[in-house]
Design a protein around this nucleic acid. Sequence first.
DNA 1: TTGAAAGCGCTAACAG
DNA 2: CTGTTAGCGCTTTCAA
Lengths: 339, 339
Amino acid sequence: MKSTIKDVAKAAGVSPSTVSRAMHNNPRISEEMRGKIRALADEMGFHPNQMARSLVNRKTRIIGIVFPGAATESLGHPFYPKVLQGLGRAASERRYQMLLGMTEGSSSQDSIRDLVDSGYVSGLVLLAAEDGAAAIDAGVPTVVIGRPRCWESCYCVDNDNVEAGREATDYLIRLGHRQLLLLGYDKQYMVTVDRRQGYEKALEQNGIVFRRDWVVPSRFLDNNTDQELLWSLFRQKERPTGVVCMDDAQAIGLTSSLSAIGLSVPGDVSIVSFNNTEAGRYHNPPLTSMDVNPGQLGYEAMNMVLDLVKEKANVPHLYQVPFQMALRGSATEYRETSY
Amino acid sequence: MKSTIKDVAKAAGVSPSTVSRAMHNNPRISEEMRGKIRALADEMGFHPNQMARSLVNRKTRIIGIVFPGAATESLGHPFYPKVLQGLGRAASERRYQMLLGMTEGSSSQDSIRDLVDSGYVSGLVLLAAEDGAAAIDAGVPTVVIGRPRCWESCYCVDNDNVEAGREATDYLIRLGHRQLLLLGYDKQYMVTVDRRQGYEKALEQNGIVFRRDWVVPSRFLDNNTDQELLWSLFRQKERPTGVVCMDDAQAIGLTSSLSAIGLSVPGDVSIVSFNNTEAGRYHNPPLTSMDVNPGQLGYEAMNMVLDLVKEKANVPHLYQVPFQMALRGSATEYRETSY
DNA sequence: TTGAAAGCGCTAACAG
DNA sequence: CTGTTAGCGCTTTCAA
């Protein structure tokens, strides 16, 4: 049986409150009493029951983590474990723990309710910007990773995705490419709309005219019917010589899709993508990819919620983490012979 | 302000106990009262405070997850997120939540203590067999993923690693290879000692003599000094033509190490490895790799702890999950011309 | 079928 | 500096 504060109090011949004070380095206790009690507590293997503490102070040292959509599924993409690493690092530095909200099958809305209603968490971090709206009335301090639609009224940490999109595109342009396709656009996801904006910006800054039909969804990689659409784009006389992909996985898919119609990467088409995954790193050719620093995203997000929980003043509503391109072989200089 | 059981009781004109019964489908309450109260509770947005409940019932719906060593670091290897997925899937099916123990910098021993002492968890799953010893006196039902030294006296889910090692080796032998190196052995890790045993078994079953100097640690990949040792092995006249690697990462490292001395994979050396990672899948050549089903490992482990927590009878001490080879290009038939 | 009372383990005034 | 008291929100005998 685990010993309680009363046991220790009795053994030490003092009152429970004294033990409580000793355990929390409360100043209202003598040095010697404190030492004596702590030693005794140690000996008896006493550890304050957090459950009871939380009940009275109305706060826990737990932050809930909410994964997007089908919960556990998202962990399949390497972005999430990396974010989790960062979250964990910050949490452990500040001696907090993380409770995972993975309500299989149900919406993240439910996941959030579960987490909060349970009373276990004193803060939340949402791993999907799409759930951002929920952040507003979650009932506990909440920060979302990514940029939700309601971003001005909530706390979030994100990359400057329009700038990232611009830089990725610009990189290709620097390489001499002027026929640029954007693959993986989905207006549902702010990340992609932001990056697309950056893409358009880069085009404009370089006097390249924007072609609406060269902004395509990732669905174009899915099956033969859809690939046909993609292929038709690359069979035009003036075909894209460079592609900006929203994710390494798409770049990988694209590479093989292209090879099916006899186009090679980077020989015929240069590719720049996002997320700098291991798969992309070992892909053939190795992918030039934008690293968005998922680890730091998590790290900053956790520190932000904790600041909020601690009611620190002036916590900024948005923190932007830097990104950088990992330069590898999938994007090379444009050559006439590309045609 | 969140409403408490008392608020609801007052509003319904009944006692708190009645509300409590209504919320938990206790039979000692009339159907109509139950309906009325639940409706009211819903309307008032009342959710029982789990903290308070746990305090009185002495159990929570939370399982602690302990990562090996430097906590968050381990998430860097794709094996762990996949295990986590499986854990999450089972946990969510049975309506449990997971608390992550990531005590940065401190041992997993401390991590375990933290988790258990806090009183938050009613069960534990350890993601590293090396921590197995701790499972015995954790104080709550514990299952470990992998095979700890003390495996007979604790609960674990694992692969049959000697068989896996045997099959991997045998695959190379089937391909005609008879000079086989084992890379990544470390007697500290039971996985590798088990797989090595399988390796030896395969050799024996095929009348190949075991060479102690062909069982090498992964350190041989680390730096030039160590690689020299590896290279010397491959510069012998009778060099290995097949290698069994304990992890895809090693297979990748080996490939490039080998290419530095002019040996190619699979042309000169065939490789079979473990863990079937994305990196290996997109590596050049794509890795033939043993998939140990990390997801299922997690899934079964979670179900096992929960069975233990629920005091289900006859929970087996060991559950073995199947594995299977993903056949790809890094291992090909042995040809004389390999020399 | 419902209510009253006691208590889970701990903390936080308020006295002394 | 230390003890007393009350109570966090809920469950659970025990009576009614």
